[in-house]
Design a protein around this nucleic acid. Structure first.
Lengths: 209, 209
DNA sequence: CCGACAAACATGTACATACAAGTTAACCAG
DNA sequence: CTGGTTAACTTGTATGTACATGTTTGTCGG
């Protein structure tokens, strides 16, 4: 194998966890024991454990050996939280397109869930997630206004044209490069979707973290 | 200061990036230079850089100094991808409740977006995200069946009762501990929400990473 | 029997060193 | 001027050491 040692160690431990050899909630062997088992230095072991910790498989604190997180159910949902991380972990590539960012009044259902009044301002975000280039997931997020407004405030050069395009449902990132092309065309049509696919090349497509 | 050195270094570099001192797209100083500036060893500097990399502020490869990611617009949307990471970064605590996981037929809008036929099976996930304990975001995700089915397959002990509760909209995690209590009560009512709030203590509440 | 202290143990932090591997730029031969 | 090679630089990987800090456990005195 030519993959780095710390990657091999991480894979080995991950395999043990998945196989149930290291049950959830149980502490993993100490760093010293792992050093001996894999014939690696403590630094290498720690690098491997850091990877597993990033993935959410381990949790623990100083002085106490890390414990295997309850992955039986929690894991897929925790990682749904990070779509691209999850997709990468199962060996695929993630992409995404932001279709719409809009400020609207809350629907009845959203209002009840967010504990606000119907019609109160909220920020809706509609995103398409891609798996290996193909549509895999459609994500609708509704923020309370106090939080959602940050999505707009983050942009340093908020202008009128920019704001218009945002409200109209043009992808913000792609818009930077292709404003001219889409201005005046009918949004949210089949043609828009096809065009959005082309835009992905220049702006939105990411390979995740 | 009593915070670890590598944390201080990470904060200093993050501050420089936010202040625009290190423009987006530009390479940051080499590890050797940072060592000299902060009077720290390379290992400490690398620990700090690893933190910034986790946060998505840096990207780069071997042999080339890491570059500052284009955070002007991309960042908030990339991090929307990881709600809890984003919330933590702005100094708050994140929580979440999974309200519903269901297998259904795709709606017309979802079908078009995912490039499938209307009525084709999809997996809907409805989640409420909490910021400092208060509802902040409602997230509806629709997966194509091929991907969404993994959410069920991950569970080792899928049973009939379990499936029923899932379809009925009971939080999966909380269900483990409180199945008896909620069986037979009206779901999706105001009372359910209040009860779900109590459940959060024992199962679903997480502090993020 | 129980509380307090101490020792053993585990992880967190920090530094120094060495070599591997990728990138860039200078340089030189043609 | 062009093309290829080399050399310098940078990050990735790996090891070793040392000390700080938190946890657990065992022991001893009351």
């Amino acid at each position: 194998m030519r993959s780095p040692l710390h990657v091999q160690v991480a894979e080995a431990i991950r395999a043990r966890i998945i196989a149930g050899e290291l049950p959830t909630g149980a502490p993993i062997p100490s760093e010293a024991q792992l050093c001996e088992q894999f014939g690696a230095s403590r630094g290498t072991i720690r690098t491997a454990l850091a990877s597993l910790r990033r993935e959410g498989l381990l949790s623990g604190g100083q002085g106490r050996p890390p414990t295997v997180r309850d992955t039986a159910l929690g894991q897929p949902f925790e990682q749904l939280l990070s779509f691209s991380a999850w997709v990468q972990q199962i060996g695929h590539t993630a992409g995404q397109r932001t279709i719409e960012v809009a400020r609207r009044g809350a629907t009845a259902a959203a209002a009840e869930a967010l504990d606000i009044n119907e019609g109160d301002p909220v920020v809706d975000v509609l995103r398409l997630r891609l798996l290996d280039g193909h549509p895999a997931m459609l994500e609708r997020s509704t923020f309370v206004e106090r939080v959602g407004r940050l999505l707009f405030d983050f942009d340093p050069d908020t202008g009128s044209l920019y704001g218009y395009l945002t409200a109209a449902g043009v992808d913000l990132h792609a818009a930077r490069h292709t404003m001219d092309a889409v201005l005046g065309m009918a949004m949210r049509t089949k043609a828009f979707w096809l065009l959005a696919g082309a835009f992905a090349i220049c702006g939105i497509t990411t390979n995740g973290l």
